[in-house]
Every structure is written in C-alpha cells, then in structure tokens.
Amino acid sequence: MKIVNSIKELKSYLAEEKRNNKQIGFVPTMGALHNGHLSLVERCVKENDVCVVSVFVNPTQFNDKHDLETYPRTLDQDCALLEPAGCDYVFAPSAEEMYPEPDTRTFDFGTVSAVMEGARRPGHFNGVAQIVSKLFYVVEPDNAYFGEKDFQQIAVIRAMVKQLDIPVKINACPILREADGLALSSRNVRLTPEQRQKAPLIARTLKESTNFAPEKSVQEVIDYVIDTINADPVMRVEYYEIVDGYTMESIRNWSDTTYPVGCITVYCGEVRLIDNIKY
C-alpha cells in the first residue's frame, strides 16, 4: 500500500495502472475510519483491480468552525486499518494541495441539496460537491463507493456527476451498525459513556416507526419519532422528515412516492448524529 500526499504523484501511479487496463475503485473519506468505511473498502477491493481511499477533512463543507476543529484526525490509525483491508493507495493531501487557491464554484442541484441538511448547514453540500468533483478529477475512478448513512449526500453526488458529466458509477452501500443499532460514525467517539448508552434510541425509534406505516399518516409517524426521541433529556431532534428517496422532497401521503425514506438528525449532547430508514 502506498501513501501519497501529492496530486501529481497519485495521477502518475494511476496513469500506469490504467495503461495496464486496471479498473479503479475509489472510496472518499474524511478519515477517523471505522467498520462502516471498511465495508466500503471491502466492496471496492472485491469489485475493482485497484482500490484508492482518500483521507481528507475537507474545510469547505463545514459551516461550523468548532465542528471542523474537533473532527477526529487519525491518519496513522486509518492506514493501519486500510492496509490489511486491501487498499492499494491512500491519498492524504493537505488543504493547500487540494485548494492551492479558493474554489469559487457554486452548484445548484435544486431541491436535492436545498432541504434537510442543505437547509440547516448552508454551503455544506456545495463544499461536498467541490471536494468530491476535485477528487474524481484526480483519481478518475470507474467506481466510487459511499455509505447510505449520508443518504442525502449520495443524491447530491449523483446530481453532481450528472451535471458535470463525470464518467463514474456511484455505488451506495448499506449502513453498518453497532450490535445495539447505532449507525457507525466517526462522531461516535465524541459521545460520553452516558450519551453512547442513549444514542441507540435513534435507530430503535426509527425501526419501531416502520410498524405504524402506512396504517398511520405520514405526519403521525413523524410526530411519534420526534416525541419518542425528545422524551429523553439527553437527546434533541433537529429534524425528522419523510421524503421521496430520489428527489428528497417531503411527502404528505404514503402514496406520494414509491420510495419513502425517513431522514433524521439528532443532537446527543453536543454531538450531531444522522440516520435514516426506508419505509
């Protein structure tokens, strides 16, 4: 496994791989890797000849400076996990390498990026589109792998790939969970022992809510999820919306879509956790 910090060096290695007709798979990450990331790497290794993983905490997708500063950075640990997983290249650039000058591009993906996370984290998805497009231009992968925990992000990336006409297949991979249901996340390490004990309430409530659909109305299911989680003093729901899984538009009736997905963001103490469930 090679650890590469420069765009020029990585492009040179991958050009050689392509000359040998190797298919390239890519897993973009912000590091602080866990088994959820490793499941993406595992699939990437299985389906491609070459596996590239980027480890880069992208400053342009954080609208909260504190969140950027406290985001865990564990490159040595990450590399120790990636090598036995079969990764061929770790791309770990500096911010200066990825942004030698400010990226002033602005994207418009319509509703897909305007609601939920887009509404509450202004500029977040624009930053995601900036960095993922940059990485795609560097790696030029045949396949890219993303976890479904960031459900809305996948929809945004699909819209971006279409808009920019980037020839890459976007592969969505199922959420990996702890034994108690909590979705794996790099942010989980910031939970106190008490918060970690409480956090599985999110997944448990989402799962329970599927028992009521579609007998109960969409609004009744939303109210049930919010009220159940907010009843715990450690938890605070920022939003829970049931949307069309393709357009991210909120639905009012179950008949509004063939692909209803519930998307939630909850503050557990100060730690912001996201999850989703298909109905």
Score class of each variant (00 low, 15 high):
Asn171Gly: 00
Cys173Gly: 03
Ala159Pro: 02
Leu182Trp: 11
His124Thr: 01
Arg121Thr: 15
Arg190Tyr: 15
Ala144Pro: 05
Thr192Tyr: 06
Gly110Tyr: 04
Asp103Glu: 15
Gly181Glu: 14
Arg177Thr: 04
Glu117Asn: 02
Ala129Pro: 05
Ile170Ser: 02
Gln152Ala: 06
Phe146Thr: 00
Phe109Arg: 00
Ser133His: 12
Val189Pro: 08
Thr106His: 11
Ala172Cys: 10
Pro167Met: 08
Val139Gln: 10
Val112Glu: 02
Gly147Val: 08
Ser185Cys: 04
Phe125Arg: 07
Lys134Thr: 09
Glu178His: 13
Gln130Leu: 09
Ser186Val: 04
Phe151His: 05
Arg105Tyr: 08
Lys134Arg: 13
Ala129Met: 07
Asn143Arg: 15
Pro100His: 14
Thr104Phe: 10
Pro141Thr: 12
Ile154Asp: 00
Leu176Gly: 09
Ala155Thr: 02
Met160Gln: 11
Tyr137Trp: 14
Pro174Cys: 14
Asp103Pro: 04
Thr192Asp: 14
Pro141His: 06
Asp108Ile: 08
Gly147Ala: 06
Lys169Cys: 14
Ile157Ser: 01
Leu135His: 05
Gly123Arg: 12
Pro141Trp: 06
Asp180Gln: 10
Arg121Asn: 15
Leu182Asp: 03
Pro122Gln: 12
Val112Thr: 12
Val112Asn: 02
Lys169Asp: 13
Leu182Asn: 10
Val138Trp: 09
Ala144Trp: 02
Phe107Trp: 07
Asp103Ile: 01
Val115Tyr: 04
Pro100Thr: 11
Ile170Val: 15
Thr192Phe: 09
Arg190Ile: 08
Phe146Ser: 00
Leu184Lys: 10
Val138Gly: 08
Ile170Pro: 05
Val156Thr: 03
Val156Glu: 07
Ala179Arg: 13
Thr111Leu: 11
Leu135Asn: 06
Lys134Glu: 10
Glu148Arg: 08
Asp180His: 04
Ser185Lys: 02
Cys173Trp: 07
Gln152Glu: 03
Ala179Asn: 15
Val132Ile: 14
Leu184Gly: 05
Asn143Ile: 08
Met116Lys: 03
Phe146Pro: 02
Arg187Lys: 14
Ser185Phe: 00
Asn126Gln: 12
Val139Glu: 15
Asn126Ser: 05
Gln153Val: 03
Met160Cys: 01
Gln152Arg: 01
Asp108Cys: 11
Ile166Gln: 02
Ala129Cys: 10
Arg120Met: 12
Ala155Trp: 00
Leu176Ile: 14
Asp165His: 12
Asn143Tyr: 14
Ala159Leu: 00
Pro141Gln: 07
Gln152Gly: 07
Asn188Asp: 12
Ala114Leu: 08
Thr192Gln: 15
Ile154Asn: 04
Pro167Asn: 13
Ile157Asp: 01
Ala144Arg: 06
Gly147Gln: 02
Asp108Ala: 14
Ser113Asn: 05
Asp150Arg: 01
Asn126Leu: 06
Gln153Cys: 00
Arg158Ala: 01
Met160Asp: 06
Pro122His: 11
Arg177Ile: 09
Arg190Pro: 03
Ile175Arg: 09
Val168Ala: 08
Gly127Thr: 04
Phe125Glu: 02
Thr106Met: 12
Pro141Tyr: 08
Leu191Arg: 14
Ile175Glu: 01
Leu184Glu: 13
Val132His: 05
Lys134Gln: 15
Met160Val: 07
Ile175Ser: 01
His124Glu: 02
Phe136Thr: 07
Arg177Glu: 08
Asp103Phe: 04
Gly147Ser: 03
Gln163Ile: 01
Arg121Leu: 14
Pro100Tyr: 05
Ala179Tyr: 13
Pro102Met: 11
Phe151Asp: 07
Phe125Asn: 07
